[in-house]
Computed example of a mutant assay.
Amino acid sequence: MTNLTLALDAMGGDHGPQVTVPAALQALRLHPKLSLLLVGDEIQISPYLCAAEIDVRDRITIVHTTEVVRMDDKPATALRQAKNSSMRLAIEQVRDGKADGCVSAGNTGALMAMAKVLLKMLPGVDRPALVSCLPAINGKPVYLLDLGANIQCDYDTLFQFAVMGSVLSEAVDKIARPKVALLNVGIEECKGNGDVQQAAQLLLHTPQLNYAGFIEGDEIYSGKVDVIVCDGFVGNITLKTSEGIARLLVHQLKQGLAKGFMVRILARLLAPRIQKVLNQMNPDHYNGASLLGLRAVVVKSHGNADEHAYIQAISLAYTEAKRRLPEMIKDRLESILLDINS
C-alpha cells in the first residue's frame, strides 16, 4: 500500500498539543504507512515527542507557526487575517500536494471557509456537507448529513448530499449499495416541505442510488438505512439533541448503580457489558466529521476531543485518503449527472 501523509492542525481545539500530539503518535503506531505533518508552535509540540520511538518520530515533520484560529473567531475574519495560522497552513499542505488530507479540532466555520477557498469544490457540488457517523441498534454505522454547514438547502443540494453520503458509506464501510433516506416529519409521500419532496423525486429516478424513502427521527438509530440526509439546521439540532440524551442516560445509569449494596454487587458483575453500552453512547467513540464535496480530504474533530477521540478522527482521514474518497464522489456524480442529462 502507498504511504500517506496527513496534515494535523496541532493547535486546534480546546486542548491543542496536549491532546493532538500524543494522539498523533498513537495513530502512527496504528498505521505503519502513515506520516504526519504537525502544524503549530514547535516549542509547544516538541516536548510531547521526546518519549516517542525513533521509527515513529521519523514519520513526523513539524511545520512551525505560532498563529492560531480562536474558537470564537468569525469565519470571514479568520479567512482574511489568519493567513499564518496552524489551521490555514495545514490546509495549504494539502493544497500544495504535501499532504493527502487534513485534520483539525478548531473552529468549524473557519475550517469550512478556508477549505472551500483553498481546496475548491468538486465539479457538480455546490456546497460542502458536514457528515458524521452515528451508532445503530444493529451495530452498523449510520451517516447523517448535513450537520450544520448549510442551514438551508434546496432540493438539488440535498440530492448532492445523498450521492456523497452513499459514496462515503461504500468507501469507508465497504457497504454495497447503501440505503439512503431523507429525514422527514413522516414517511408518507405527501409529507415534508417542497425541497424535501423534490429531492425525493430526484432520488426515486436515480437507479444508481439505493433510495429507501423518508425516515423519521425515531428511526435514525434503527439501522434500517445507512445514510440519512437533511439540511444543516435539522441535522445539527438532531446531533446535539442525541448527544444530550446520551449524556442524560449515562448520568442516570451511573446514579442508579451507585444506590444500594446489592445493586453495586450486580454492577460489578455487569461492568464489562455496561461499559460497552456506555462506549457506544459516547459521541467521542465516533469522533470525526468529514467535509464532503471538497477536492481533498478534510476531517473536523470535536473541539473538546480527548486523545482517544482525536485518534478516531485521524484514522477516519487516513481511511478516506487511502480509498481516494473525493475521486470516488467525483466519478459517481459525473456518472449520475450524465444519466440524468442524457
Rank of each mutant, 00 (worst) to 15 (best):
L291S: 04
L257R: 11
I91G: 10
S242N: 06
G139I: 01
M112I: 13
P75L: 12
A78D: 10
L292E: 00
G97P: 00
L145S: 04
L122A: 09
F161H: 08
D41P: 00
N193G: 11
P178T: 10
G16V: 08
G223W: 03
T66E: 13
V172R: 13
R268N: 14
I151F: 04
V229E: 06
I187G: 15
K254D: 11
R70D: 15
I43C: 14
L202P: 03
K120R: 15
D126V: 03
L34D: 05
N282L: 07
V277T: 11
Q255P: 09
E216D: 05
N210S: 14
L30M: 11
P32F: 02
G109L: 06
K74D: 15
K140T: 07
G235K: 03
A171V: 15
S315R: 07
L6T: 08
P272L: 08
I220D: 02
P17Q: 00
Q252G: 12
G235V: 04
A24D: 01
P283K: 04
A212R: 00
C190V: 15
E92Q: 14
L202G: 03
Q197D: 12
F161G: 04
E327F: 12
S132E: 10
N341H: 11
K254F: 03
V299M: 09
P326M: 00
E320A: 03
K174E: 14
L291R: 08
E189F: 06
R264D: 10
D14C: 02
L337V: 14
K120P: 15
I215D: 08
D154I: 01
R88V: 09
L338A: 13
I311Q: 05
R323C: 14
Y48H: 11
N282A: 06
I329F: 08
G40S: 01
A136Y: 13
K83R: 12
L203H: 06
N193S: 05
V117P: 01
S46I: 09
D9T: 00
Y48V: 11
Y318W: 02
K179L: 10
G232E: 07
